[in-house]
Design a protein around this nucleic acid. Sequence first.
DNA 1: GTGAAAGCGCTAACAC
DNA 2: GTGTTAGCGCTTTCAC
Lengths: 343, 343
Amino acid sequence: MGDKGRRVSIKDVARHSGVGIGTVSRVINNSDRISPETRQKVLNSIKELGYIPNRAAQSMRSHKTKDIAFFIDISNLTFSRIATGTYQYLESQGYTLTLCHIGKNRSTTLEKVKSFLNGRTFDGIILSLPSEENEALNQYLKKVDVPIVTIDRDIPGLVTGVVTDYHGSLQKAVDYLISLGHRGIALVNGLPIIRPSKLITRSFREAMERNGMTVDESLLFHGEYSRDFGAQTMLNLLPRIRHREVTAIVCMHDEIFHGMLRVMKDYHLRCPEDVSVITLEDYELMQLLTPPFTVIRRQLIDMGEKVAQGLINYIQNPELYGQLEPYSLPTEFIIRESCAPPA
Amino acid sequence: MGDKGRRVSIKDVARHSGVGIGTVSRVINNSDRISPETRQKVLNSIKELGYIPNRAAQSMRSHKTKDIAFFIDISNLTFSRIATGTYQYLESQGYTLTLCHIGKNRSTTLEKVKSFLNGRTFDGIILSLPSEENEALNQYLKKVDVPIVTIDRDIPGLVTGVVTDYHGSLQKAVDYLISLGHRGIALVNGLPIIRPSKLITRSFREAMERNGMTVDESLLFHGEYSRDFGAQTMLNLLPRIRHREVTAIVCMHDEIFHGMLRVMKDYHLRCPEDVSVITLEDYELMQLLTPPFTVIRRQLIDMGEKVAQGLINYIQNPELYGQLEPYSLPTEFIIRESCAPPA
DNA sequence: GTGAAAGCGCTAACAC
DNA sequence: GTGTTAGCGCTTTCAC
């Protein structure tokens, strides 16, 4: 902790350069027409005095903060990827990012969002919500009077910033499994209270039907994005895998995947000999597992960047708000060694 | 975006409850002595009008923001763990957390920190810096007049908030390897410009010597916290591993470990048959790798929480600033299956 | 105990 | 073009 001397203010600059504070303000915001000489004079004083505008004061007057709120579950690895992209773009545009960790617990989301937003101002908000069906929250958010953009969520009244396009990859994944000879294919997916889960199920169905298969509804698993759900699902699946009723699994979440893997390990289920597996996210470790896993990859950093881009665009062009299509993030299907013809 | 109606201010509350705005302010900050009746009257008005104090205005006057800046490389998984802990504690104390992603590039750190802090006020700062030896940065930070606390860094003039105690675990790790019969043990470590790397090397040396071994300096590797460094180091080690000159590796960083693993995979080096490996961080996946890895574990969430705790303590008790010992985070040595007697 | 008033540092509206 | 002024919403003397 250093010197506590009063910070130099706009007044000091005005006095030092012999102009009015309004003029200084105009120079800072390079608004209006200002004579080049005056501008230079002021600029010199600013430099000489080491003046830095006080953001709190600026935003109090202008109602702009250059600060974006980001609501997300930061305990997950996916987060750090998305956040990195978001951060980088925001920084490049002179914005800062303030985090709000809403956790996984859906029942506390509203409360967290509310108390976070209380009395604070943001120029915009990015949301990655654990549910689309929190009516109270949705109502509340509609009333917030800054641009809000969601990540992979369809919430009536809110604007979707980015959306993941799993369709093509899922088609490829299912085609691939079927070409390998699989018939009993399980889909392990998130809760259908969010957009991606719904779309994934739909695409999966379509892919199966296109291949002339009927979908066994008991092979469609929906649950929390958690290791527990993954473990439990795998436990359920175990007998059917052993009876060769199920020979392949498509798992659409990384934490769920960890849970499944854990049980596979514990029960000495071999992959791909006993069961073929395709999962989501292409983290480095996916290639380092045994076997290296066949995955659906999405560019998470890109995703974070694109939401931020969309939001800033809306902030700077309010008339566009809600008029643009969400950015559609492509995915890739990457074949490695976790799938084989059923025994 | 909802109604843009003017927010209710302290004035409205004052008028509504028939008191002066000073009184309202006192109630909000529950400062001074206020008669119970007045307090209740004001509280009622606040509730009735749905009044929420404006933070920008509050902090402009009081020079307190209830906001903590967190400088860290958010692209790493370790981050999301630490940040989760920090966030939770801060939230429980009514503080918010604003992120600054400084990245890995040491040469841009000063610039990033500076431009981030420019004109903004924080009640405190938490630092996880990529180097202790950035003199310009250290000088700059000393002048900042709010409490700053570092994570696992010794920077003259700054206060260390939390420190990892690798010593015991490292002793156990080395003892364990030696008891297994290993003699050629390599240590792969970060750059010695940060505290943990130095301490790790020292503890490793001590452990070796205590076991009557002399340390082969060419087996002490220092480098960036990156997969590239890990890969390159493994490549270097390859011939010596094949000649059974090196039979065990202790790797003290997760990303470096990924790089090493990658090369081991590519060169079909088996673990533990060809080389025994111990690594740092006990992420779920560490148990799911083949083999499950023997690790040194640190409680990262705890770590994040403890720094936050220390910082808030200093904020609330400025007279303590720099007087307290950093919190020493314990580590555990967890034996799994990545080590075996050398062939 | 409580009200009135000053002013934090700035932007924007209004003069000239 | 540029100076002056009125607040933004709050905390904090300073009276009473």
